[in-house]
């Protein structure tokens, strides 16, 4: 039977202002994890009931470890940011479907991500058996994080909203710029809705297969409560209405399946 696991904190550091990198050890979670999946983290403060969904940034299957990179957003993530090596945290997962890596095999893969959508792309870049991977990463400003970790696994393109580093504009703009000389054969994207909508539009206009990782407020995180749905183009096989559960059928969807 599945259960909430206790994971040991291996290390935590603030890798950029308000952005934390947390390594956790739990063999059950790490053992079956795939790129693009997420875990539920539970708070210690009993007033904060609901799990916080956080994507897997890296998976070390040999050591039974996972890496989470998250932004301090509110009280829950603030609580997590105080975790120190040797502490424990309650975690459930891996949850959701992850990116369809087999679809990218032998193709030129673009990973397009913005802000706190960047972390799940790292393990995706590591696991992709693509014919080449380009990671297009959009940041607010020159306060960039994780980009160095990608260098060994992908060609990196960086953009910033304020133009203080790399291409000025969001990651969708940087995608279009870069694609002019190197056309993607498949695109995976993660980040704010405006970014996803722009990437979807670009992919459709250019006839490129595209997969998007969606975000929605969750309560159960396991598919039971129907809190986390996103609008779908067709009637879904499980819900029998035009929406899909991000925590179960997602978080990754083929772009055409989703209405943005």
């Amino acid at each position: 039977m599945k259960k909430i696991e206790t994971a040991k904190v291996i290390s935590q550091e603030e890798i950029s202002s308000g952005i934390f990198s947390l390594w956790l050890e739990n063999e059950t979670v790490a053992g079956s994890a795939a790129a693009g999946q997420f875990v539920n983290l539970y708070c210690n403060n009993a007033g904060r009931l609901l799990p916080r969904p956080i994507s897997l940034c890296e998976i070390d299957r040999e050591k039974g470890r996972i890496r989470l990179v998250y932004r301090v957003q509110g009280k829950g993530t603030e609580e997590f940011s105080a975790l120190k090596a040797g502490d424990t945290v309650k975690v459930l997962g891996p949850n959701g479907n992850g990116f369809p890596l087999d679809e990218a095999a032998g193709k030129l893969l673009y990973l397009v991500s913005g802000g706190i959508g960047i972390p799940p792309m790292l393990q995706t870049a590591k696991d992709a058996a693509s014919a080449g991977t380009v990671s297009v990463m959009g940041y607010r400003n020159a306060d960039i994080f994780l980009a160095n970790d990608f260098a060994a696994h992908a060609k990196c393109v960086i953009s910033t909203d304020d133009g203080s580093f790399g291409i000025q504009g969001n990651a969708a703009y940087a995608l279009a710029q870069t694609a002019e000389t190197m056309m993607p054969e498949i695109i995976f994207a993660c980040g704010p809705k405006v970014l996803l909508a722009a990437v979807k539009k670009y992919a459709q206009e250019n006839g490129i297969p595209c997969y998007l990782s969606m975000e929605e407020r969750m309560a159960c995180g396991v598919g039971a409560c129907l809190a986390c749905v996103c609008e779908s183009a067709e009637v879904d096989g499980h819900t029998h209405v035009k929406n899909k559960r991000v925590c179960k059928e997602g978080p990754v969807f083929e772009a055409g399946e989703i209405v943005l």
Binding site: R217, A227, V229, V241, N243
Partner: peptide
């Protein structure tokens, strides 16, 4: 079948 409400559908309170 009922489609339910738009999201966000849940919010945490103390």
């Amino acid at each position: 079948p009922w489609p339910g409400n738009p999201t966000p559908r849940v919010a945490e309170t103390y």
